[in-house]
């Protein structure tokens, strides 16, 4: 019994960032790399199932360059015995469609019983990978999951799905399944210092596209989800500063608050 958890290293932009030479992304020198917040929750969900039953393996997998190994180690420090990292230069700037193809091959190879992804990653917020992967595999899927009731061997899982306005849907799903996990489903743990140390010794399998029977040409032939034309700094995105004396600023705030309350 195995749960595969795709995780991602994300870039957070610095204040005074600059764009890459081709204008299609941020210059990586102005990106701080971190683990995607949603993946803490999906990994925790998998660990909790692992700890509640015997014989469950949790395997984190990431698609990313060398330094993306950190996000795998970060997972392995909390639990799990091995990780998988897939990389090929052809995956630079890959769109969700390509990532889906790669992960589908990993699933084929690993034969997990469940796949948990984050609902989205906070850098690009595509929210396509999990559900796209399920489609490529022909698996059932459910997105934005805030509750999982399932133990190994159960043919169905009972899920909670968070909808707009605080409404929650309870649904059951056939397994195996791909779930995209929402923040707040659990309280992700912090790795112990011992766990961090041990994680350094745990094996991480590095796979190339060829190892998965894919090539850059295959990905190109299938076409991406989209092609980035350019990125740019929007006019908005900066706080609108309210000026004047405190009395004046407060008066404007009262106006804004009333407007926002009225609009809601």
């Amino acid at each position: 019994m195995k749960i595969l958890v795709p995780v991602k290293q994300i870039g957070v932009v610095d204040e005074d960032f600059e764009l890459r030479g081709d204008g299609k992304d941020v210059d990586p020198d102005f990106l701080n790399f971190e683990a995607n917040e949603w993946d803490d929750y999906s990994y925790e969900a998998a660990l909790q199932i692992m700890e509640a039953a015997d014989g469950v393996e949790v395997v984190p997998v990431t698609v990313g360059p060398d330094d993306a190994e950190d996000v795998l180690r970060r997972c392995l420090a909390k639990g799990g015995e091995r990780g998988i990292r897939v990389w090929d230069d052809a995956l630079e700037d890959a769109s969700p469609a390509a990532i889906v193809q790669v992960l589908a091959k990993v699933v084929e190879k690993e034969q997990p019983d469940m796949v948990f992804t984050g609902t989205l990653s906070s850098d690009r917020s595509y929210a396509q990978t999990g559900v796209g992967l399920a489609a490529a595999l022909g698996w059932p899927h459910a997105a934005v999951i805030t509750g999982i009731e399932w133990k190994p061997g159960d043919p169905k899982a009972t899920l909670l799905r968070e909808l707009e306005g605080g409404l929650v849907e309870q649904l059951s799903v056939n397994c195996p399944v791909v779930l995209t996990i929402q923040l707040g489903i659990n309280t992700p743990r912090y790795a112990s210092l011992r766990g961090v140390k041990q994680a350094k010794e745990k094996p991480v399998e590095d796979l190339s596209l060829a190892d998965l029977g894919l090539s850059g040409d295959d990905l190109a032939a299938a076409g991406g989800s989209f092609r980035v034309r350019r990125m740019y700094k929007p006019e908005t995105g900066q706080a609108e500063l309210i000026e004047g004396t405190p009395a004046e600023q407060a008066a404007r705030l009262v106006e804004i608050i009333n407007e926002l309350k009225g609009a809601a």
Partner: peptide, 15 residues
Amino acid sequence: AAYAEKLHMEVDFPG
């Protein structure tokens, strides 16, 4: 948008 709304990205869909 991308990167927590700090950037906008323009995409097209060749083919």
